[in-house]
């Protein structure tokens, strides 16, 4: 229990710190909300009037207090570009992107774990080299390259899947999956590379351990030895790395969603940055940070469930 409280406290503290940094940085940048709303050519007096009414002339700490109170009570303000309440806007886009995140992670894990295990079992043989080369290819080529290749192959030549666009999963789930598939695959290829290498190195060290020899000495089949005795021990570290990857994933979806014109969280962040929609920037950054941290918290708690050696004190 102390462990969970510890972790929750540290998540809360980190989020508070992130909110402070985002707020300060967005305020230091030249041009404030009033300037964005009225444009650079506007009348200085009207600008000043708007500043006063928006409370932009108050000390920064007061402004921050007002903003963070709003965030905590559910009043996230209005987007300047979309002219909508930010809360519902983000909620909508997060669901859309969640589909991509979950799908790309599933694609990556279902491919990476067997590939990594296969490489570890055939260590230093051609299978290992093949897996390492595949992994290296995935890491070294950027996501958008895979995105373009996939669009060309699946949308243009084969015509199996839509090349771009977005369908909300609440309206048409199958359509949503069809639209999310190519962006997920593009992201999954990069992720898979990291996870394959991680699975390989973890499995390699586990297969060298004495309990694997004991399992073989019992007469268990190789399948049981590798997929039960081995993988049960490797899954924890792989999950941890997968959890950390979620952070990178949110960086990558900004590019990928724009490429596929998939209007999710990444696309929204990009629009916010492009248009200097300061309230929206603050909120998206905050939400992404929260999602990443909560994912990692869940992974750590899963780890406790998988590995009996880690006890919740």
């Amino acid at each position: 229990m102390a462990y969970i409280i510890n972790r929750l406290l540290s998540v809360a503290l980190t989020l508070l710190l992130i909110s402070l940094i985002t707020f300060v940085v967005t305020n230091i940048l030249p041009g404030d909300v009033a300037m964005v709303i009225m444009g650079t050519q506007s009348n200085p007096e009207a600008l000043e009037g708007l500043r006063e009414s928006l409370g932009l002339n108050d000390p920064l700490i007061v402004q921050y207090g007002r903003w963070i109170t709003g965030m905590l009570t559910g009043d996230w303000g209005r987007s300047l570009v979309f002219k909508e309440a930010i809360g519902p806007l983000i909620a909508d886009k997060v669901t859309a992107s969640a589909l991509i995140v979950v799908m790309s992670m599933s694609i990556a894990l279902t491919a990476a774990i067997p590939l990594g295990v296969w490489a570890a079992v055939h260590r230093d043989k051609w299978q290992d080299n093949a897996a390492s080369t595949t992994a290296l290819l995935g890491v070294s080529l950027p996501d958008f390259f895979w995105g373009i290749m996939l669009i060309l192959l699946f949308a243009r030549y084969l015509g199996w899947l839509p090349s771009s666009g977005f369908v909300h999963p609440a309206e048409d789930f199958v359509g949503a999956v069809r639209h999310a598939f190519l962006p997920s695959l593009a992201l999954g290829l990069g992720l898979m590379a990291h996870l394959t290498r991680m699975t390989r190195s973890t499995m390699t060290s586990i297969l060298g351990q004495e309990f694997i020899r004991v399992a073989r000495a019992k007469g268990l089949t190789e399948r049981t030895v590798i997929w039960r005795y081995g993988l049960a021990n490797a899954i924890g570290p792989v999950m941890t790395v997968a959890g950390l990857q979620v952070g990178y994933l949110f960086g990558s979806i900004i590019v990928i969603e724009s490429l596929f014109n998939f209007t999710g969280m990444g696309w929204l962040t990009y629009q916010a940055l492009l248009n200097r929609d300061i309230p929206l920037i603050q909120s998206t950054v905050f939400v992404i940070a929260a999602v990443v941290m909560i994912t990692n918290l869940i992974v750590d708690l899963l780890y406790v469930a998988i590995d009996p050696r880690i006890k919740l004190p």
């Binding site: 309990f211 005795y229 049960a232 021990n233 998988i306």
Partner: peptide
């Protein structure tokens, strides 16, 4: 090595 002869997660 009795410390590593048993699978830690079973």
């Amino acid at each position: 090595e009795p410390m590593t002869s048993l699978n830690p997660v079973f």
